[in-house]
């Protein structure tokens, strides 16, 4: 990522992050409209969004950041797709608000299941997607030579 080298931030990277964030937020909004959670119901749409987004970033980061692949990956792929689209698609604040809403609505069991289920699904998703992508690329083991996602 070009902007990593110095304190300055590249406008191209910022633009890519912004455009990706707009697209990701729009996709999340669309999912929440398509599958609205009834009051006191399990927020399936955001659960799916956060698990899917976590899986996709696991695959993306293996593809663009591990084992030196950052040298030939398109330079804006990671800021656009990783930081922008997937970062804007998934949401930690709405997740926390959902948990808080279920607790306030007298649904402690559902709140706990949703809170822990999202953590489990997202971590399982990122782990499985990274593992499958590494295997598909013919490399084994935890290639942690990459950088941070954002």
């Amino acid at each position: 990522m070009p902007a990593r080298s110095g304190p300055g931030v590249s406008w191209a990277v910022l633009g890519a992050v912004s455009a990706g964030g707009a697209l990701g937020a729009l996709a999340r909004y669309g999912a929440l409209l398509a599958w609205p959670a009834p009051a006191g119901g399990f927020p399936w749409a955001l659960f799916g969004v956060n698990v899917l987004g976590s899986g996709l970033i696991g695959a993306l980061m293996v593809l663009v950041a591990e084992n030196g692949r950052d040298r030939w990956a398109p330079p804006l792929a990671r800021p656009f797709l990783g930081v922008g689209v997937l970062g804007g698609f998934t949401s930690f604040s709405t997740y926390a608000m959902d948990v808080s809403g279920l607790l306030a609505g007298g649904e402690p069991v559902k709140a706990t299941a949703y809170a822990l289920g999202t953590v489990g699904g997202a971590l399982g998703g990122v782990w499985a997607a990274a593992a499958v992508t590494r295997r598909a690329l013919g490399r084994r083991g935890g290639g942690v030579a990459g950088g941070r996602a954002a």
């Binding site: 976590s54 970033i57 990783g82 970062g87 949401s91 930690f92 604040s93 997740y95 990122v126 954002a150």
Partner: peptide, 18 residues
């Protein structure tokens, strides 16, 4: 939905934890 949703992230949280 827009700003806070995109300001926060679950995907990066998951990847960094992994």
């Amino acid at each position: 939905t827009g700003l806070c949703g995109a300001l926060t992230t679950y995907s990066t949280f998951s990847y960094e934890t992994l």
